[in-house]
Each structure stands twice: as C-alpha cells, then as structure tokens.
Design a protein around this nucleic acid. Structure first.
Lengths: 138, 138
DNA sequence: GCCTAATAGAAAATAATTGTCAATAGAAAA
DNA sequence: TTTTCTATTGACAATTATTTTCTATTAGGC
C-alpha cells in the first residue's frame, strides 16, 4: 500500500513526502474528512505535522485534481480522493458521509431542457437517515 | 412591496427593522447573493449597516427557515429566500446562479434503494454554461 | 553523493465569523 | 399616545479559519 500511495502521488505529479503519504492514507482509510479531522488523524501518527502543511497540500492536491472538496449543508467541507463520478449521502443523525452511484443522465437532460444550459458537472448531496440510525431510532 | 416585506418578516417571527427589510429586498431582487455581495448591495442604500449585522441577520433568518444557504463548488456560499424545493445551476463562465425545478423523485428512489438510507432532502447543483455564454463563446 | 527546486514547519499576516456591550428602536401593553 | 420591555444595531474586540513569509530541509534527477 505504501508503494501504491507513492505511485499514486507520482501519477498526479506530486512530490512524494511522508506528510503527503499520510494524508492520502487517511483519506483512503476514512473516505471523507474535513480539514480538522484530517489534521487530527494525521497528528496521531505524525505529531510534527503543521496545519499549514495540511492546507498547502490540500490545495496542491486539488490543483492536480487528485482530491475533491465536498460541500455539505450545515457542516464543514469534506475532502475525498477523486474517483468516478458519484453522489453523496449524509446521515443527519450520525454525520456519516457515503458515496452512491446514481445514473444522473436523465436528470441532467431534464435540467438542460428546462434551462438551456450545457451541463458538464453535477454535485448531488442527499441528506437523510442511514440504515443503522434507522434501526436504532424506531 | 414594503408591506409585503414587512408581512413576510412577521410571518417568520422576525422583528421588522429597516436593515432586515433591506436584506430581504436585495435577496428578492437578486435571487442569490453571498454575504459580501449582500453587504455591498445594502451599503449602497444603507451605508451605516455593519457587516456583523448582516451575519447576525443571516443567522436569525436561517434559524427561522426564512432563507437558505446554497453551497456551490469553488465559490463562496450564496443565500436565497426559502422557496419550493428546487435545484441550482451555476454558469462556469459568468458565475450566474439560477433555480431550476427538477423532478427528483426517481433519483431519490434510486438513492434510497442503493443505499438503504431514508432520504428527506436533496441539494442538487448543476454546473455548466448558460445560454448567453454559449452564444458568445462559439 | 551532489545540485536544484519544491516542501515543511514556525510564526506572522490576513480573512472570515462571532461575541460583547451600551445605546436605540420595535412592538405590545397601559 | 406614552410607557415599558426586550431584541437589535453598530463599534469594536475576540475568535476562528486560512494564507503567506521565510528559512532549513528534503525529494528526485543527474
């Protein structure tokens, strides 16, 4: 996995540093993390890492399209590794964020017809209650 | 329209002040505004208004569900008066934000089936090029 | 191993948002 | 109306969030 991360960083033209590897590994492990969550996670393994470095790397990685920001209502932005297009679901109870593949072709078509825009990108966030919280709740 | 705004504020249990009326009027006129845009617009008519007051009112109005925050990729959040559920389109060229009504029932159903979440809310942002910029561009 | 440009970390600088507090202004009651 | 009470305003300070600056260090090519 180390090699994996190294390769990944190189693919995106990012110099391989221990700090960056750490960031990527945490994102692989956790999926979606805010700046603060990321910083805390990493400090457990890498106490010397500074917050400014997290910010700088987040930007460097976004510039290379290696990671993406996910803006979610009511909470701080999360970051994730870039993957195939997908939507996000957030549980309003426990705050968990998950990916979900949806077929957005028809809704894009609908939007294009109604608006006359040429759409090239979507950000779809669904909020609700996850199956785990649903069972606990009833 | 004055009376209109006054009534609106009262409906949402918000004390009617000139500052608030100004905020609401600008949102009615412009549709979607960031904090800064709102502040600038209002200062033209109401130079004494302070930025802190804008923030405080934005929060008061969000608490009463009178306005909503719209989080858009790459740009600062915009605020809009609460209306019927709708999606948003942003033009990547000129930055214009518009509402669009979409039928999201089937996509919600798809998400619920794939994720086992119970979805109660969606935030759908579509990015692309608006018809005006499309014509200019070619 | 050596060289060069990029990166990390500490700290300061800037930007964004929120809190404090005295003065004032809505709105309800007298 | 006038009075009273509480919420709001605006100036300012305080926080919080993010970015920049600067120097020492390090990655990666030769």
């Amino acid at each position: 996995m180390d090699t994996n991360v190294t390769q990944l960083l190189k693919t995106y033209e990012l110099k391989v540093t221990p700090q960056r590897m750490c960031i990527v590994e945490e994102l692989m492990k956790n999926g979606h993390l805010s700046i603060d969550e990321l910083y805390e996670k990493i400090r457990e393994r890498f106490p010397s890492l500074s917050l400014a470095t997290v910010y700088k790397n987040i930007h460097a990685m976004m510039d290379k399209n290696f990671i993406k920001e996910v803006k979610i209502p009511n909470v701080k932005s999360k970051f994730e590794l870039t993957k195939n297009d997908h939507a996000h679901i957030i549980c309003e109870k426990c705050g968990k964020v998950e990916d979900v593949d949806v077929n957005s072709l028809s809704i894009i078509k609908e939007v294009e017809e109604k608006s006359s825009y040429k759409i090239d990108h979507t950000d779809l966030i669904f909020s609700g209650i996850c199956p785990e919280c649903l069972t606990k709740e009833s």
